[in-house]
Structures are given as structure tokens and as C-alpha cells.
Write a protein that binds this DNA or RNA. Structure first.
Lengths: 129, 129
DNA sequence: GTAGGCCTTCCCATTACTGGAAGGTCAAGC
DNA sequence: GCTTGACCTTCCAGTAATGGGAAGGCCTAC
């Protein structure tokens, strides 16, 4: 299977698939013409990667999860730990964004948004808020 | 004022302040010895930048906000628009993270996390969830 | 044989820094 | 006067995870 078809099936851009090969996440065979020849296993891995990435796992998380996925003797405790740590970082990001949102939302609501002088947003940014 | 003191006052690393000069956000004078010589205005700008960055504005947003801040004839409508667009992008990010969180949280709770075979997390990632 | 649509590699750009090397400057202490 | 150490300088490279685009090979159809 050529990279174009794999891209379609996995939902990943061809560029990204080549990158994943570069960093060793997949190792497709090569045809005589030099084209990458993807097997079913490769496609499965790429689907796995696409899903994991869409859940926000980093590439290194993905590498670990993929190793666990391929490890017949894996303990799901290891998987759970990676996922829980990621969940924690998602929670921290949400909290951070919510704090930004609260502050900024307040400033935006207090800004009349016309030509009158005095803008609460600029005043806050300037340290006089 | 040397960069070290400015770093302390603004809360920004010296490295970051040099970077901001590089990209034209501040233009400190230079002393005879080649050291950057920051004035009060520079410090104000850097405090402004630190605050705006902490609210998640991009560097280019900051550049625009700084220009508006320095523009005596500015309309707060312009400021408000930048802020509102940023608020929208924060909201989109939060929504995205919350979706990830919901899915992953569900998977984590369903994963027993021991040595028994079958891990809902891996099964989801593999497309069999 | 040629047009187009694939595929290949390679290098550069992105965002907002961060780290580190190599070297100049300054103030203090001996 | 000399050294030490803290500060400053520039420049180069790296981060995460791609995306863009050039230059060129391959493949199929007309």
C-alpha cells in the first residue's frame, strides 16, 4: 500500500507519516521503486497513533503506548499510568486556560469598545488594572 | 538599568528580554560598554508584555496591543477586538481539552490497571474501543 | 512521448523561547 | 596590578510536531 492510500485510511497527512517513520514510530518496507510499502500492521499502528495524538498524547507518550500495545506481556497498569499523567496535564492546562479566560472575559466586558479614552484591558496589561 | 535588574523587575528571563529586542518589541539604548541600558519606558513595556503573555496572547497579539497602548489616538474597540478573538481561541482550546479529558477520563476509569488482559485504553487507541 | 499525478529526499519555516559556548566588562579583594 | 566571579555580549543550536516547497524519479494513460 502506498503512502497516499495509508494517509487516507489513517487520516494522517503523508508528510506526518514520513515524519513518524523518521523518528522510528513505523518502519514500512520498501518496494523496488523505492516507494514505501505499508502492510496492515503499519496501518494499524498509524491509526493508533492518529487516535492517541488526537487525545493529546505527546509523540513520546505515543511511542510508549505503542510499545505497550505491542507487548504481549504488558501490564495495563503501565498504560493507565501514562494515561493518568496525561490526564493530569490536561487538567492543569484547562485550569490555566480557565484562569486566563476569567480574567480576560472580565476585562473584555468592562471595555466599552468605542472611542472614549480609558481601556480597562490596556490598563490591566500596563499593570494599572 | 542593566538587563539583570530589568529581568527581576519584569519577571521575564534575561534571555527572553534579549529575544524581545531581537524581534523588535523593545529597543533599549546601549551604554559605552555595549550593555543594554533600559529606561523606565522599556521596563513598562516589558511588564506589559509579561502580563499579556501570561494571559496567553501571542507575540504578534502583544505587538499589536503594544502599538495600541502607545497610540494616543487608539480606539479601545481595536483592543477589544484583539482580546475577544483571543478569548474565542481560549474557549476553543478549553472545549477541545475538555473533550479529550472526557474521553480519556472514561477510559482511565474503565481500565482496571493490573495484570489482567484487556486494556480499554489500548483497545480504544487501536480503534476497537 | 508526454502529461499528470503520484512518489522520493532535502532543507527551511513555524512559536516562543531555552541552553550553552566563547568571550568582553566590572567591582571587590589581596 | 592581578585575579576571581558575577555580570554582560553575540551567536549557534535545539525544542514539538509538523507544513511548505523545491528538485527530481516513477507510473499510467492517452
Amino acid at each position: 500500500m502506498n503512502i497516499g492510500e495509508v494517509a487516507e485510511q489513517s487520516g494522517l497527512p503523508a508528510k506526518t507519516i514520513r515524519y513518524y517513520e523518521d523518528i522510528g514510530l513505523v518502519r514500512p518496507a520498501r518496494g523496488e521503486n523505492g516507494y514505501r510499502a505499508f502492510g496492515e500492521t503499519d496501518v494499524h499502528k498509524l491509526v493508533f497513533l492518529a487516535r492517541a495524538r488526537s487525545l493529546g498524547f505527546t509523540i513520546e507518550d505515543c511511542r510508549a503506548l505503542l510499545a505497550l500495545y505491542e507487548d504481549r506481556a504488558r501490564a495495563s497498569a503501565d498504560v493507565k499510568q501514562v494515561a493518568q499523567e496525561h490526564l493530569g496535564s490536561i487538567e492543569r492546562k484547562i485550569t490555566e486556560l480557565q484562569a486566563m479566560h476569567a480574567t480576560l472575559s472580565d476585562l473584555v466586558h468592562r471595555c466599552h469598545g468605542d472611542d472614549r479614552p480609558g481601556c480597562p484591558i490596556l490598563e490591566d496589561l500596563a499593570g494599572r488594572g
